[in-house]
Amino acid sequence: MPREIAIFGVLLPTLLPLFIASLLLQGVLDWVLGHTGLYRRAWHPALVRLCLLVCIFGALIVTLYQ
């Protein structure tokens, strides 16, 4: 289980790159869902976006820390 990642001599917690990766993945998924019109069917689109981000972040954490 890696706890820290060294980038150019700076130690970063492992969760920071995972969070940035999940933000990028969620941005792509958000763009796809927005262009397909699926957000019009959601009761609260902002809540759906937040839940997607939490699910993606959780999935990345589970794959790393198994």
Rank of each mutant, 00 (worst) to 15 (best):
A46T: 10
Q66T: 09
V10R: 10
G9Y: 05
G37E: 08
P17A: 07
I5L: 14
G37K: 06
A59S: 14
G9R: 03
G34Y: 06
F19Y: 07
S22G: 11
I56C: 03
C55F: 15
L12D: 00
F57W: 14
I7N: 02
L33V: 07
L24S: 12
T63K: 13
L16V: 14
F19N: 02
C55K: 03
G34P: 05
L33W: 07
G27V: 12
Q26M: 15
I20Y: 04
C51V: 12
L50Y: 15
P13K: 13
P2R: 05
T36G: 08
V28D: 00
M1D: 04
W43D: 10
L12I: 09
I61Q: 03
P45G: 09
V62D: 10
W43Q: 11
F8W: 08
V48Y: 05
L50M: 15
L25N: 00
F57C: 05
R49N: 05
V48N: 03
Y39M: 09
L29C: 11
I61F: 10
A21N: 02
I5N: 00
M1T: 02
I61P: 01
A6M: 11
R41L: 14
P45K: 12
I56P: 01
L23G: 06
L12A: 03
W31G: 09
V32M: 12
V10A: 09
L38Q: 11
P45M: 08
I7L: 10
I56H: 02
G58T: 10
L24R: 02
Y65F: 15
I56Q: 01
L50V: 13
F57G: 00
I20F: 14
L18Q: 03
L23A: 12
V10W: 15
V32N: 02
L53T: 03
V10Y: 14
F8Q: 12
L12E: 00
W43F: 13
L15K: 04
G9T: 02
F57E: 01
C55L: 15
P2N: 06
F19K: 03
C51Y: 08
C55E: 06
L60S: 01
L25Y: 06
T14L: 06
R49F: 14
T36E: 11
P13E: 08
L29P: 01
I61G: 01
A59D: 09
L11S: 11
L60V: 03
S22N: 07
H44R: 15
V62N: 10
L24I: 14
M1G: 11
C55Y: 06
T63Y: 15
A42D: 08
L38Y: 12
I56F: 05
L16R: 08
A46V: 07
I56G: 02
H44V: 00
Q26E: 13
T14S: 04
W31L: 14
V62I: 13
Q66Y: 11
L11R: 13
R40V: 04
L60Y: 09
L47Q: 15
L25P: 01
L15V: 12
Y39S: 05
C55M: 15
H35M: 13
A6Q: 11
G9K: 03
L64C: 09
V28T: 07
V32C: 09
T63E: 14
H44C: 06
H44A: 11
